[in-house]
Amino acid sequence: MTGRVIVITSGKGGVGKTTTSANIGTALAKNGASVALIDTDIGLRNLDLLLGLENRIVYTLVDVVEERCKLKQALVKDKKNPNLCLLAAAQTRDKSAVTAEQLKAICEELQEEFDFILVDCPAGIEQGFQTAVAGASEAIVVTTPEMSAVRDADRIIGLLEAREEIKSYKLLLNRVRPNLIKTNDMMSVEDVVDILSCDLIGIIPEDTGIITSTNKGEPIVNDEKSLAGKAYMNVARRINGEDVPFLNIDEPKGFAAFVAKVKKIFGAKA
Protein backbone atom coordinates (compact mmCIF):
# COMPACT_ATOMS: atom_id res chain seq x y z
CA MET A 1 0.00 0.00 0.00
CA THR A 2 1.27 3.43 -0.87
CA GLY A 3 -0.50 6.23 0.89
CA ARG A 4 -0.92 9.74 -0.45
CA VAL A 5 1.12 12.37 1.31
CA ILE A 6 -0.70 15.71 1.33
CA VAL A 7 0.78 18.83 2.82
CA ILE A 8 -1.58 21.53 4.11
CA THR A 9 0.05 24.90 3.86
CA SER A 10 -0.77 28.58 3.49
CA GLY A 11 2.15 30.92 3.95
CA LYS A 12 0.16 33.28 6.10
CA GLY A 13 -0.57 32.32 9.67
CA GLY A 14 -4.02 32.14 11.18
CA VAL A 15 -5.94 31.18 8.06
CA GLY A 16 -6.85 27.75 9.39
CA LYS A 17 -4.18 25.26 8.34
CA THR A 18 -4.37 23.33 11.57
CA THR A 19 -8.16 23.39 11.71
CA THR A 20 -8.24 22.18 8.13
CA SER A 21 -5.76 19.40 8.85
CA ALA A 22 -7.70 18.19 11.86
CA ASN A 23 -11.03 18.26 10.05
CA ILE A 24 -9.95 16.76 6.75
CA GLY A 25 -8.05 14.08 8.63
CA THR A 26 -11.06 13.23 10.75
CA ALA A 27 -13.39 13.33 7.75
CA LEU A 28 -11.17 10.98 5.72
CA ALA A 29 -10.95 8.61 8.66
CA LYS A 30 -14.71 8.73 9.09
CA ASN A 31 -15.07 7.69 5.47
CA GLY A 32 -13.05 4.59 6.27
CA ALA A 33 -9.52 5.50 5.20
CA SER A 34 -6.57 5.15 7.54
CA VAL A 35 -5.05 8.55 8.16
CA ALA A 36 -1.87 9.78 9.84
CA LEU A 37 -1.64 13.43 10.79
CA ILE A 38 1.82 14.92 11.21
CA ASP A 39 2.20 18.21 13.03
CA THR A 40 5.39 19.85 11.80
CA ASP A 41 4.85 23.11 13.65
CA ILE A 42 7.58 22.30 16.15
CA GLY A 43 7.57 24.64 19.11
CA LEU A 44 4.09 25.96 18.36
CA ARG A 45 2.09 22.79 18.15
CA ASN A 46 -1.69 22.99 18.19
CA LEU A 47 -2.98 20.03 16.25
CA ASP A 48 -3.06 17.87 19.38
CA LEU A 49 -5.25 20.46 21.06
CA LEU A 50 -7.77 20.53 18.21
CA LEU A 51 -8.07 16.77 18.32
CA GLY A 52 -8.23 16.70 22.11
CA LEU A 53 -5.21 14.42 22.35
CA GLU A 54 -3.00 16.75 24.34
CA ASN A 55 -2.98 14.60 27.46
CA ARG A 56 -1.91 11.48 25.61
CA ILE A 57 1.27 12.73 24.01
CA VAL A 58 4.49 11.37 25.37
CA TYR A 59 6.68 10.96 22.31
CA THR A 60 6.84 13.47 19.51
CA LEU A 61 8.17 13.86 16.00
CA VAL A 62 11.49 15.05 17.42
CA ASP A 63 11.79 11.94 19.61
CA VAL A 64 11.27 9.79 16.53
CA VAL A 65 13.86 11.71 14.56
CA GLU A 66 16.37 11.56 17.40
CA GLU A 67 15.64 7.85 17.81
CA ARG A 68 14.44 7.99 21.35
CA CYS A 69 11.45 5.93 20.34
CA LYS A 70 10.06 4.04 17.41
CA LEU A 71 7.67 5.69 14.99
CA LYS A 72 4.76 3.51 16.08
CA GLN A 73 5.21 4.47 19.68
CA ALA A 74 4.87 8.13 18.87
CA LEU A 75 1.62 7.70 16.93
CA VAL A 76 -1.30 8.67 19.14
CA LYS A 77 -4.58 7.06 18.25
CA ASP A 78 -7.65 9.29 18.12
CA LYS A 79 -10.20 8.97 20.89
CA LYS A 80 -13.16 8.23 18.60
CA ASN A 81 -11.69 7.09 15.35
CA PRO A 82 -9.21 4.21 15.45
CA ASN A 83 -8.30 4.92 11.81
CA LEU A 84 -6.83 8.26 12.75
CA CYS A 85 -3.35 8.71 14.23
CA LEU A 86 -1.46 11.82 15.24
CA LEU A 87 2.28 12.33 15.22
CA ALA A 88 2.64 15.41 17.38
CA ALA A 89 5.33 18.07 17.22
CA ALA A 90 7.58 18.78 20.17
CA GLN A 91 6.65 21.88 22.08
CA THR A 92 10.01 22.37 23.74
CA ARG A 93 12.12 22.52 20.58
CA ASP A 94 12.19 24.53 17.37
CA LYS A 95 11.99 23.96 13.65
CA SER A 96 15.69 23.13 13.28
CA ALA A 97 15.15 19.87 15.19
CA VAL A 98 13.88 18.08 12.09
CA THR A 99 15.38 18.20 8.61
CA ALA A 100 13.63 17.72 5.29
CA GLU A 101 15.31 14.35 4.72
CA GLN A 102 14.22 13.07 8.10
CA LEU A 103 10.60 14.05 7.57
CA LYS A 104 10.67 12.53 4.11
CA ALA A 105 11.88 9.25 5.59
CA ILE A 106 9.08 9.32 8.15
CA CYS A 107 6.49 10.00 5.45
CA GLU A 108 7.82 7.10 3.41
CA GLU A 109 7.58 4.82 6.42
CA LEU A 110 4.02 5.91 7.13
CA GLN A 111 3.02 5.54 3.49
CA GLU A 112 3.24 1.79 3.85
CA GLU A 113 0.61 1.67 6.55
CA PHE A 114 -1.73 4.57 5.95
CA ASP A 115 -3.94 5.60 3.06
CA PHE A 116 -3.41 9.28 3.75
CA ILE A 117 -0.62 11.17 5.45
CA LEU A 118 -1.60 14.78 6.12
CA VAL A 119 1.27 17.10 6.98
CA ASP A 120 0.28 20.23 8.88
CA CYS A 121 2.73 22.88 7.76
CA PRO A 122 3.90 25.81 9.89
CA ALA A 123 3.33 29.38 8.70
CA GLY A 124 6.08 31.02 6.72
CA ILE A 125 8.30 29.96 3.84
CA GLU A 126 11.45 29.21 5.82
CA GLN A 127 12.95 25.96 7.01
CA GLY A 128 9.74 24.74 8.61
CA PHE A 129 7.88 25.01 5.31
CA GLN A 130 10.69 23.41 3.35
CA THR A 131 10.75 20.51 5.81
CA ALA A 132 7.00 19.97 5.78
CA VAL A 133 6.77 19.98 2.00
CA ALA A 134 9.68 17.58 1.55
CA GLY A 135 7.79 14.31 1.84
CA ALA A 136 4.58 15.37 0.10
CA SER A 137 3.39 14.75 -3.41
CA GLU A 138 0.20 16.78 -3.15
CA ALA A 139 -0.62 20.07 -1.52
CA ILE A 140 -3.67 21.90 -0.26
CA VAL A 141 -3.19 25.66 -0.07
CA VAL A 142 -5.44 27.24 2.53
CA THR A 143 -6.33 30.88 2.17
CA THR A 144 -9.00 33.32 3.25
CA PRO A 145 -10.67 35.92 1.03
CA GLU A 146 -8.36 38.69 2.22
CA MET A 147 -5.73 40.43 0.17
CA SER A 148 -2.85 39.57 2.51
CA ALA A 149 -3.73 35.88 2.68
CA VAL A 150 -4.27 35.68 -1.06
CA ARG A 151 -0.93 37.31 -1.75
CA ASP A 152 0.86 34.87 0.59
CA ALA A 153 -0.97 31.96 -1.01
CA ASP A 154 0.25 33.18 -4.38
CA ARG A 155 3.81 33.11 -3.12
CA ILE A 156 3.33 29.60 -1.71
CA ILE A 157 1.87 28.30 -4.97
CA GLY A 158 4.92 29.67 -6.74
CA LEU A 159 7.20 27.78 -4.37
CA LEU A 160 5.14 24.61 -4.76
CA GLU A 161 5.25 24.82 -8.55
CA ALA A 162 9.03 25.06 -8.38
CA ARG A 163 9.12 21.70 -6.62
CA GLU A 164 9.06 18.73 -8.92
CA GLU A 165 7.79 16.27 -6.32
CA ILE A 166 4.54 18.21 -5.82
CA LYS A 167 2.33 16.65 -8.47
CA SER A 168 -0.83 18.60 -7.75
CA TYR A 169 -2.01 21.44 -5.56
CA LYS A 170 -5.52 22.60 -4.74
CA LEU A 171 -6.95 25.71 -3.16
CA LEU A 172 -9.13 25.67 -0.08
CA LEU A 173 -10.93 28.90 0.66
CA ASN A 174 -11.56 29.26 4.35
CA ARG A 175 -13.66 31.61 6.49
CA VAL A 176 -15.86 32.78 3.65
CA ARG A 177 -18.64 35.17 4.77
CA PRO A 178 -21.42 35.32 2.19
CA ASN A 179 -22.96 38.44 3.75
CA LEU A 180 -19.78 40.43 3.28
CA ILE A 181 -19.34 39.17 -0.25
CA LYS A 182 -22.86 40.37 -1.06
CA THR A 183 -22.07 43.86 0.18
CA ASN A 184 -18.76 43.82 -1.73
CA ASP A 185 -16.79 44.04 1.50
CA MET A 186 -15.09 40.73 0.87
CA MET A 187 -13.47 39.23 -2.18
CA SER A 188 -15.74 36.67 -3.77
CA VAL A 189 -14.76 33.07 -4.34
CA GLU A 190 -14.50 33.74 -8.08
CA ASP A 191 -12.14 36.67 -7.48
CA VAL A 192 -9.77 34.59 -5.42
CA VAL A 193 -9.78 31.73 -7.90
CA ASP A 194 -9.16 34.19 -10.71
CA ILE A 195 -6.23 35.82 -8.95
CA LEU A 196 -4.57 32.56 -8.01
CA SER A 197 -5.65 30.59 -11.11
CA CYS A 198 -5.75 27.42 -9.14
CA ASP A 199 -8.32 24.62 -8.79
CA LEU A 200 -10.65 24.83 -5.84
CA ILE A 201 -11.07 21.86 -3.55
CA GLY A 202 -13.40 23.44 -1.06
CA ILE A 203 -15.15 26.51 0.28
CA ILE A 204 -15.53 26.63 4.04
CA PRO A 205 -17.93 29.21 5.46
CA GLU A 206 -17.08 31.17 8.56
CA ASP A 207 -18.58 29.29 11.48
CA THR A 208 -18.58 30.20 15.15
CA GLY A 209 -18.80 26.48 15.85
CA ILE A 210 -15.11 26.25 14.91
CA ILE A 211 -14.18 28.22 18.00
CA THR A 212 -16.15 26.01 20.37
CA SER A 213 -14.96 22.86 18.64
CA THR A 214 -11.35 24.00 19.02
CA ASN A 215 -11.85 24.67 22.71
CA LYS A 216 -13.52 21.32 23.21
CA GLY A 217 -10.87 19.44 21.29
CA GLU A 218 -13.38 17.98 18.89
CA PRO A 219 -13.14 18.56 15.12
CA ILE A 220 -16.26 20.22 13.70
CA VAL A 221 -16.84 17.43 11.16
CA ASN A 222 -18.11 15.38 14.08
CA ASP A 223 -20.99 17.86 14.29
CA GLU A 224 -23.16 16.87 11.37
CA LYS A 225 -25.43 19.88 11.61
CA SER A 226 -22.67 22.42 11.18
CA LEU A 227 -22.24 23.97 7.74
CA ALA A 228 -18.45 24.11 8.07
CA GLY A 229 -18.43 20.46 9.10
CA LYS A 230 -20.40 19.55 5.97
CA ALA A 231 -18.04 21.58 3.83
CA TYR A 232 -15.00 19.78 5.28
CA MET A 233 -16.74 16.45 4.75
CA ASN A 234 -17.18 17.38 1.08
CA VAL A 235 -13.50 18.30 0.81
CA ALA A 236 -12.61 14.84 2.09
CA ARG A 237 -14.86 13.25 -0.52
CA ARG A 238 -13.28 15.34 -3.25
CA ILE A 239 -9.82 14.22 -2.09
CA ASN A 240 -11.10 10.68 -2.50
CA GLY A 241 -11.90 11.49 -6.13
CA GLU A 242 -15.65 11.98 -5.83
CA ASP A 243 -17.31 14.75 -7.79
CA VAL A 244 -19.20 16.72 -5.16
CA PRO A 245 -20.85 20.05 -5.93
CA PHE A 246 -19.87 22.99 -3.77
CA LEU A 247 -22.15 23.76 -0.86
CA ASN A 248 -24.46 26.69 -1.31
CA ILE A 249 -23.17 28.55 1.66
CA ASP A 250 -25.17 31.73 1.19
CA GLU A 251 -28.55 30.05 1.39
CA PRO A 252 -30.29 31.57 4.38
CA LYS A 253 -31.68 29.14 6.84
CA GLY A 254 -34.41 29.00 9.45
CA PHE A 255 -35.96 32.28 10.41
CA ALA A 256 -33.81 34.23 7.98
CA ALA A 257 -35.11 32.04 5.15
CA PHE A 258 -38.66 32.64 6.26
CA VAL A 259 -38.12 36.40 6.35
CA ALA A 260 -36.56 36.29 2.89
CA LYS A 261 -39.56 34.42 1.55
CA VAL A 262 -42.00 36.89 3.08
CA LYS A 263 -40.01 39.77 1.62
CA LYS A 264 -40.09 38.13 -1.78
CA ILE A 265 -43.83 37.71 -1.62
CA PHE A 266 -44.26 41.40 -0.86
CA GLY A 267 -41.80 42.32 -3.57
CA ALA A 268 -39.30 43.89 -1.22
CA LYS A 269 -35.58 43.79 -1.90
CA ALA A 270 -34.15 40.64 -0.34
Binding site: R56, Y59, R68, C69, K70, K72, Q73, A74, K77, K79
Partner: peptide, 18 residues
Protein backbone atom coordinates in the same frame (compact mmCIF):
# COMPACT_ATOMS: atom_id res chain seq x y z
CA UNK B 1 19.10 3.15 31.53
CA UNK B 2 17.36 6.00 29.87
CA UNK B 3 14.58 6.70 32.29
CA UNK B 4 12.49 8.26 29.55
CA UNK B 5 12.75 5.15 27.43
CA UNK B 6 11.62 2.92 30.25
CA UNK B 7 8.22 4.35 29.63
CA UNK B 8 8.10 3.49 25.99
CA UNK B 9 6.44 0.15 26.43
CA UNK B 10 3.40 1.77 27.91
CA UNK B 11 2.84 3.83 24.87
CA UNK B 12 3.73 1.17 22.40
CA UNK B 13 0.19 -0.03 22.82
CA UNK B 14 -1.08 3.51 22.59
CA UNK B 15 -4.25 4.09 24.53
CA UNK B 16 -4.62 0.44 25.40
CA UNK B 17 -2.20 0.56 28.26
CA UNK B 18 -2.53 4.21 29.04
Amino acid sequence: FDSENKLENIFAEEAKNF
